[in-house]
Structure formats: structure tokens, C-alpha cells
């Protein structure tokens, strides 16, 4: 009985502390708070949006062609009369999905390669690093541009191209982390008692790279939002009539100079919001993990 109350008091205090520390970190890292709110909103648009806005994003309605925002179509209609709001909502869903896959592929692939290369070392590591250097010599967007131009533009090539363009960054960071960890006493101890290599990698090295991987996943997502939209804007990404934010901006481009702003402006705002979300999250994660910025 006494113990019971004591425990509940402790848990209450703990909850209060946790709450206080959460509100403190929100004050200290306002970007994290804003980023999380934005992420929730974007997820809401991507998941619930297509359920609420029932009109088909591919339906052409010649009667409404080039019509501005109205009560029926709040974001207006495009050149062939399609509902821009519906297209934006579906595009956010598609872009978010592709972005997540790109970030996942680039971070897990890159982190694994960096982990193995750093731990195993030797000739394989040297050859791999030279290869990474070569990849790093190309500006990322340019690399992705060429790869999609060569292999054809579909979602699979975009994921591959951006994955190849981004992963060198994380390969290097993870490898550097592993190189410094490899000589750490606890790894040495693990090796001394005969722990198998794979166990060292999975149970001792991997957990120590989580934070880097997480921060990079957010960073890559921000890049991917802009690069996918940029590729599609140039016609080298996802092709119309599939609703995609960058391709929609391109479709509206020629109407911008004749004053029909809604065709490009709305998709662009959502590109910006998505990129902003991941930038804020990535930045605050990096700041929280980098002791130089921590106070």
C-alpha cells in the first residue's frame, strides 16, 4: 500500500520531469517543434487528403479549363480543367512516398556500406573509398539528372539515381564514426572475449551510428523533395499526367507570365513546405547530436 503510493508519486514526478524536459527541448530547438507540427500536417494531407477530396485528379473538365480558384475548386483548375487541389493532394502523397523510399535506400544502403567498409578496412575499403570520391566529384543533382536521362524516367530510376547521389555522404560519415569506434576499449574488449565480427557490428557499432543515420535520413528527405520536383520540372522525373508537384509547376509555368498563378503556385508551396519540414527536422537533430551546438 505504502509502496504503491510511493511508486505512483514517483511515476507522476517522472512524467512531470519528462514533460518539462520536452517543453525545454521545444524551447531550445524551436525547429524541432515546428518541423514536427509540419510533418504531422503533411502526413495528414497525404493520408486523409485523398479520402476527403473525392474528385479524380486525372478528370479533365474542359468547361473549367484555366479557371481560377473558386468555391468548388479552391485551388483552381489547370489548362485541361483538372482539379488542382485534388492533384496537389495526390501529388503530396506520391512525392512523400518516393521521398521516404529514397531516404530509406540512401541511408540504409550508405550506412551499411560505411559500416562494413570502415570495420573491415584493408584493400576493399581503399577501393570503395576511391569510388566514393569519384561519385562525390559530381554535383548530386547533375548525377541524378544524367542517370534518369540515361535509364529512363520512372520512379525506380529516380530512387536509384538519388540513392547513388546521396549515399556517398553517409558512407563517409558512418565510416569515420566506425573508424574511431573500432579502436574504442569496449570494442577491443568484445573482440578479446571472442565476440563474432557480425555481432560486434550489429550490437556494438550499429547502435552507435543510429543518431547520425537519423539526422541524415531527414537531410536526404529534404534534398529528395527538391530534387524529385526539380527533375520532374525538367521533364526528367515523374511524367505528367501523373500528379507530381514539380511536373505540375512545369505545366503551369507558361501560364505564370499570363497571370494564371494558381497552376504553379499551389504545387510549389507544397514542395516548399515538405522541404522545410525535413530541413527543420534534420537541422535540429544535427544540432541536438552535435556536442558543439549543445548547451
Amino acid at each position: 500500500m505504502v509502496i504503491e503510493t510511493h511508486r505512483s508519486a514517483t511515476s507522476k514526478r517522472m512524467r512531470a520531469t519528462r514533460l518539462r524536459s520536452a517543453s525545454r527541448s521545444a524551447r531550445q530547438y524551436p525547429g524541432l517543434l515546428l518541423g514536427s507540427i509540419l510533418l504531422a500536417l503533411i502526413l495528414l494531407v497525404a493520408i486523409a487528403g485523398p479520402l476527403i477530396i473525392r474528385s479524380n485528379p486525372l478528370d479533365t473538365m474542359p468547361r473549367h479549363a484555366r479557371a481560377g480558384p473558386s468555391a468548388e475548386f479552391p485551388f483552381g483548375n489547370d489548362a485541361s480543367g483538372r482539379d488542382i487541389l485534388s492533384r496537389v493532394v495526390h501529388a503530396v502523397r506520391l512525392d512523400l512516398a518516393v521521398v521516404c523510399v529514397v531516404a530509406l535506400v540512401a541511408t540504409t544502403g550508405g550506412a551499411l556500406i560505411g559500416l562494413l567498409s570502415g570495420y573491415v578496412g584493408g584493400l576493399a575499403d581503399q577501393i570503395l573509398m576511391r569510388f566514393v570520391d569519384i561519385l562525390m566529384a559530381f554535383p548530386g543533382f547533375l548525377l541524378a539528372l544524367t542517370v534518369t536521362a540515361v535509364l529512363g524516367n520512372n520512379v525506380k530510376t529516380i530512387v536509384f539515381a538519388l540513392g547513388v547521389a546521396y549515399s556517398p555522404v553517409i558512407i563517409r560519415v558512418v565510416r569515420a564514426q566506425v573508424l574511431s569506434l573500432r579502436e574504442a576499449p569496449f570494442i577491443e574488449a568484445a573482440r578479446a572475449i571472442g565476440t563474432p565480427t557480425w555481432e560486434i557490428i550489429v550490437f556494438h557499432l550499429l547502435p552507435n551510428t543510429w543518431s547520425i543515420v537519423l539526422a541524415h535520413a531527414a537531410l536526404f528527405s529534404a534534398w529528395a523533395v527538391l530534387d524529385i520536383a526539380g527533375l520532374s520540372f525538367l521533364g526528367l522525373g515523374i511524367k505528367p499526367p501523373t500528379p507530381e508537384l514539380g511536373a505540375m509547376t512545369a505545366e503551369g509555368a507558361e501560364h505564370m507570365v499570363s497571370g494564371r498563378w494558381w497552376m504553379s503556385v499551389f504545387p510549389g508551396i507544397f514542395i516548399m513546405l515538405m522541404a522545410l519540414t525535413f530541413t527543420l527536422l534534420g537541422d535540429s537533430l544535427r544540432d541536438m547530436l552535435d556536442p558543439r551546438y549543445r548547451k
Binding site: 509547376t249 509555368a253 503556385v265 514542395i271 522545410l276
Partner: peptide, 16 residues
């Protein structure tokens, strides 16, 4: 953060 997140092609169109 806003600057990094703004797609250049879109900003150009808005300016136009």
C-alpha cells in the same frame, strides 16, 4: 531554412 527549402524554379516563376 526557408531559403534552402524553396525550389529555385518555382521562386523564379513567382518572381516573374
Amino acid at each position: 531554412a526557408l531559403g534552402v527549402s524553396t525550389p529555385a524554379f518555382w521562386l523564379g516563376l513567382v518572381l516573374l
